[in-house]
Deep mutational scan, measured.
Amino acid sequence: MQRVNMIMAESPGLITICLLGYLLSAECTVFLDHENANKILNRPKRYNSGKLEEFVQGNLERECMEEKCSFEEAREVFENTERTTEFWKQYVDGDQCESNPCLNGGSCKDDINSYECWCPFGFEGKNCELDVTCNIKNGRCEQFCKNSADNKVVCSCTEGYRLAENQKSCEPAVPFPCGRVSVSQTSKLTRAETVFPDVDYVNSTEAETILDNITQSTQSFNDFTRVVGGEDAKPGQFPWQVVLNGKVDAFCGGSIVNEKWIVTAAHCVETGVKITVVAGEHNIEETEHTEQKRNVIRIIPHHNYNAAINKYNHDIALLELDEPLVLNSYVTPICIADKEYTNIFLKFGSGYVSGWGRVFHKGRSALVLQYLRVPLVDRATCLRSTKFTIYNNMFCAGFHEGGRDSCQGDSGGPHVTEVEGTSFLTGIISWGEECAMKGKYGIYTKVSRYVNWIKEKTKLT
């Protein structure tokens, strides 16, 4: 034993070699072989497995989906700052455009905790909710729209109204504003409101030439003092309507412009014939205590009207009353817009006519005020429907199939267009061939041609 100890002390290297040989010859039971080890760690190889990531292109799944990435790591994937920024906006807080917040056709661009709407022409605001041009839906104005110097929408209202708090709607500024039905039992019968379409306001006024200088022999019209197929109006439903009495009662109609003036057809009036105007009328054979009678003290036909040349060209006249009318729910003026808007309103496509005229061709006159909704007829169809001249200051309205029309005794009465609950004068009943005849239409004086003249002559002093 002493000898062994001496050998170990003198030859430590020998001992180490012996131990190493023993270990190498022993069977290893701690580690699995290569094949079995792979069965336990069965993990798919990654895209760049075996390579240094710093030297390969980034992978979106590896960089940002398996674990949260930084902007720089995302930049490695896209290799483009702009594309990385677009991805980053949604990656950080989701897609803010998912709810489609942009209105009126706006395009949404996502941002971090926010979004941006790219608005089409005519709109602005956070969600493109603000109209900035009158060309689109009248700028959301209830009545009139004008573009300011910086191309912003400025709404306005006709006389007797003021802008509401929203700067879009119009509200009454006087007790009985024009064009409004205020009798409670008839307010439910107000005709369907007309909503502004998209309009090209630059070209809204037709490029028409008034044929002022045409000389033409007097034409022989049949029954051209021209509501057939209409309905009984309720008291106060058309408070701007008046009836004219002269040699015979209810020979023509008219509309209240203001307390002192009536507008009617020029062919209705004769110099030297006494005319009485009755406002607030409903049943011409009954006294309903809503009527107001006034005498006409002055007749002003349009300066281009000449019955000797043509009885229905420039067929418009103004009547001055001896005493002002007292405005109330049964006696209310009709609204008159400017030339541009009167023309736009007419193009809405349908209007209402009213009167006490004959209820059928050569038949009896109506006792109760009649009204009828009539569609506008395109000019080409209008011209083809008659052998008589249709001037540019006239328009056609009615039904091709016949059966409904204005008729004798309705002449001078109103053709009105309702705009968001307020009625505007767009025409004056003038003439036609018979009444409600198939293929024939009622012919009306186009008020847009005469609004400046009306307003100039009827100013209240």
Rank of each mutant, 00 (worst) to 15 (best):
G398N: 04
C435D: 05
C117S: 03
L23I: 12
E456V: 08
V56G: 12
S70T: 07
C335P: 02
A173N: 06
C128P: 02
N283Y: 11
D410K: 11
A250S: 09
N5K: 13
A266Q: 02
T186Y: 10
E270P: 10
E288M: 07
G403Y: 15
V296Y: 00
L189K: 10
G106N: 03
K89P: 15
E61R: 11
S430K: 03
I334E: 01
I210Q: 14
V77H: 14
A317F: 02
N295D: 11
V153G: 12
S107Y: 06
G351I: 01
E76R: 15
P12S: 10
Y371W: 14
G355M: 04
V278W: 06
G357L: 11
H314W: 11
E320P: 00
D315H: 00
G58H: 13
V154L: 11
R404S: 14
G253N: 00
G13A: 06
F360A: 07
V419G: 01
D249H: 07
S70P: 09
N313H: 09
R75W: 05
A233L: 07
E323I: 06
M65T: 06
G179H: 01
K126T: 08
Y115P: 12
R384G: 10
E434T: 12
W240F: 03
V368K: 14
E434I: 13
Y115I: 09
G398D: 05
R75C: 13
K45I: 14
E27Y: 03
C102D: 01
T190S: 12
P324H: 05
Q237K: 04
K188D: 08
L14C: 05
D110K: 15
E171H: 06
R62W: 06
E193L: 12
T85L: 09
E434H: 15
A337S: 03
G412V: 07
P172Y: 06
D33H: 08
V451L: 03
V331C: 06
F345Y: 09
V368E: 11
F424T: 01
W261N: 01
G421T: 07
I316Q: 01
H314R: 02
N147D: 10
E98C: 07
L383N: 14
E433A: 14
F196V: 07
A436V: 02
V368W: 07
F221I: 11
K440T: 14
L325V: 02
D150W: 06
E433P: 11
T342R: 00
S365C: 07
I275E: 02
R140Q: 14
N213G: 14
V359A: 10
K109D: 11
T426W: 00
R384W: 05
F176Q: 06
R46L: 05
R191H: 07
V199D: 09
Y330M: 11
N213F: 07
D378L: 04
D249K: 12
K293Q: 10
P175A: 10
C119V: 01
E456H: 04
V181L: 11
P414L: 14
V269C: 09
N138V: 06
T389A: 08
G253Q: 10
G122I: 02
D223Y: 04
T215E: 10
H289Y: 03
N5Q: 09
S423G: 09
Y161G: 00
E53N: 08
K362N: 15
I344S: 14
R83P: 12
V77N: 15
E124I: 10
C252F: 00
E288G: 03
V92T: 07
Q185G: 11
G94Y: 05
N113T: 14
S184C: 07
I40W: 05
E420F: 15
V296T: 03
P375Y: 14
K126N: 09
T186H: 06
R226W: 04
V56W: 02
F221M: 07
P120F: 04
L327H: 03
R358S: 12
V174R: 09
L460N: 08
N343G: 14
H415C: 02
L60H: 15
V257Q: 01
F123Y: 07
N59Q: 12
R140H: 06
I275K: 01
V195Q: 08
N5R: 05
L369S: 15
G355K: 06
A397V: 14
E129R: 09
W356M: 04
I284S: 07
E129K: 10
D150T: 09
A250Q: 09
V183Q: 10
V269R: 01
F399N: 06
E76N: 15
V296S: 02
Y450S: 02
M437G: 14
T445W: 02
G442A: 15
V243K: 09
Y444G: 03
Q219K: 11
T264Q: 00
V331M: 00
V377W: 03
S107Q: 12
D405L: 15
A279I: 01
F360H: 13
K440H: 14
P375N: 15
Y91I: 14
